[in-house]
């Protein structure tokens, strides 16, 4: 596990459920560090332990926790900078989905140790997209699913994102864009200062 995932889980749990829950999760997962660092690397087993403990404490399935993490990373006020970076992907939601194949490389440009699975969006016509997503790192497909849903809201699009049957070495997400301009969405100016 790298610090990106660990730090994201920590921010999500602390911000959404409070420091006490995070402390309990840490204690349960027998993790010796008080706080994860974005820039550091940690042993791979740590994420699974933290995630397992978090799921237990929140009484949710680990996949659901990861999907909520994806939602949080894009939609929470504290995560504005990340959401801004994602908005550089395209002028509307469809363009964003189309550009998702660039995400792993974009992430690596910023944090060389960031690990995202390969992503390949395929336009199936009529606003339907199949997004193929590698299996490693495990669970990332759920984070991405939550993230796509949050980005649809951000763009003001109405879309569904369902986990389809796996295809070969990939997970499959089925994105259906029902309306490109369902709501106002959130403002995005290219220049950060203007916002």
């Amino acid at each position: 596990m790298n610090g990106v995932t660990a730090r994201a889980l920590q921010s999500f749990i602390q911000t959404t459920y409070g420091d006490a829950v995070w402390a309990a999760v840490l204690a349960d997962s027998r993790v010796e560090v008080p706080s994860f660092e974005l820039m550091l690397n940690y042993a791979p087993q740590l994420t699974e332990r933290v995630l397992g403990a978090a799921a237990k404490h929140l009484n949710r399935a680990p996949d659901e926790v990861l999907e909520d993490l994806g939602l949080f990373l894009v939609s929470h006020a504290d995560m504005q900078p990340l959401r801004r970076l994602l908005r550089f992907g395209g002028v509307d939601f469809a363009a964003f989905v189309q550009s998702m194949g660039d995400l792993p490389e974009r992430a690596r440009m910023v944090l060389p140790h960031a690990t995202m699975p390969p992503i390949r969006p395929v336009d199936e016509g009529d606003g339907r997209w199949a997004i193929f997503c590698g299996r490693r790192p495990e669970g990332m497909v759920h984070v991405i699913r939550g993230g796509i849903r949050a980005m649809a809201d951000d763009y003001g699009a109405l879309a569904t994102v369902e986990l389809g049957p796996d295809e070969g070495p990939n997970h499959r997400l089925d994105v259906t864009i029902l309306s490109d301009h369902f709501s106002e969405g959130r403002v995005f100016d290219l220049a950060a200062q203007a916002e």
């Binding site: 801004r84 970076l85 290219l190």
Partner: peptide, 9 residues
Amino acid sequence: LYLMEAKSL
């Protein structure tokens, strides 16, 4: 723009 913003973050 993306890189400038990402780099400063």
